[in-house]
Design a protein around this nucleic acid. Structure first.
Length: 188
DNA sequence: TAAACGATGCCCT
DNA sequence: GGGCATCGTTTAC
C-alpha cells in the first residue's frame, strides 16, 4: 500500500491521451475485498506477479478497471487506479466518453479506462516504457508533490474499515464520489 | 449446469 | 441522493 501512496501524482499515458493519478486504492490477498483473496484462479493469476504489469478486469459486466500489480514474493497484491486529472488528449477523451465536463472524464475507475481506451485486452501487459500503457513516476512527470488524504475504501462490501484509499487533496475536483469526509464541503 | 454476486456509472428525483 | 442495468467469475447443487 506504500505503492498506492506513491502512485498519486504519477502520469498514465495510453492511446494519445494521458492523466495524472489523483486517487488510488490498495488491495492485498490477505484481506477479503481483494480478488486474490480466493487464491490463484484463471482470473486472479496476474495479481500474483510479477509487479509492474496491468491487471484489467470487467466489473459489473460493463466496465473495465485498471490495476497496477504490486506483488512481491508471490503474494497477490495490486493498486486500483480510481481517478485521473486529464492532461493530454482531452478531446479524444471527450469523444470516447461522450461527455464534455472535464471533471466527468476520469473521475471514476470505469470512466478513466473508457477515456484512455484501456480495455480487457491490455490485461497482463507491461506498465513500463516497453508496454502499451505507460506509467511515468511522479518525478519524471515533474508533477507537484500532492497533499495526500487517507480514507476508507469505497464500492466494496468487505474489509471496509481498512484505510487504504489515497486521494490528492489538491485535486478534489477530479476525485470520484463519494469523496473522503475530510475533503467534502471544499471545492478546490 | 445453474444461480448469486459485485473494486460501477448513469439517469432520474 | 437513490435505484437499476448488465455479464463474467465463482460457487453450489
Amino acid at each position: 500500500m506504500e505503492v498506492a501512496r506513491d502512485l498519486i501524482g504519477c502520469v498514465v499515458r495510453h492511446a494519445g491521451s494521458a492523466g495524472r493519478i489523483v486517487e488510488a486504492e490498495a488491495y492485498h490477498e490477505e484481506e477479503p475485498a481483494c480478488h486474490a483473496f480466493v487464491g490463484l484462479t484463471a482470473r486472479t493469476k496476474p495479481l500474483f506477479g510479477p509487479a509492474g504489469f496491468a491487471y484489467v478486469y470487467r466489473s459489473y459486466g460493463i466496465h473495465a478497471l485498471l490495476n497496477a500489480v504490486t506483488s512481491e514474493d508471490g503474494e497477490g497484491a495490486a493498486v486500483l487506479i480510481r481517478a485521473l486529472e486529464p492532461l493530454d488528449g482531452i478531446e479524444l477523451m471527450r469523444a470516447r466518453r461522450g461527455v464534455e465536463r472535464l471533471t466527468d472524464l476520469c473521475s471514476g475507475p470505469g470512466k478513466l479506462t473508457q477515456a484512455l481506451d484501456i480495455g480487457l485486452s491490455l490485461n497482463e501487459t507491461s506498465l513500463l516504457a516497453d508496454g502499451p500503457i505507460e506509467f511515468l513516476p511522479r518525478e519524471a512527470a515533474d508533477a507537484p508533490v500532492p497533499r495526500i488524504v487517507v480514507s476508507e475504501r469505497i464500492g466494496i462490501t468487505r474489509a471496509m474499515e481498512l484505510p487504504w484509499r489515497f486521494s490528492d487533496a489538491n485535486a478534489v475536483r477530479f476525485v470520484s464520489s463519494p469523496r473522503p469526509p475530510e475533503l467534502r464541503a471544499r471545492a478546490a
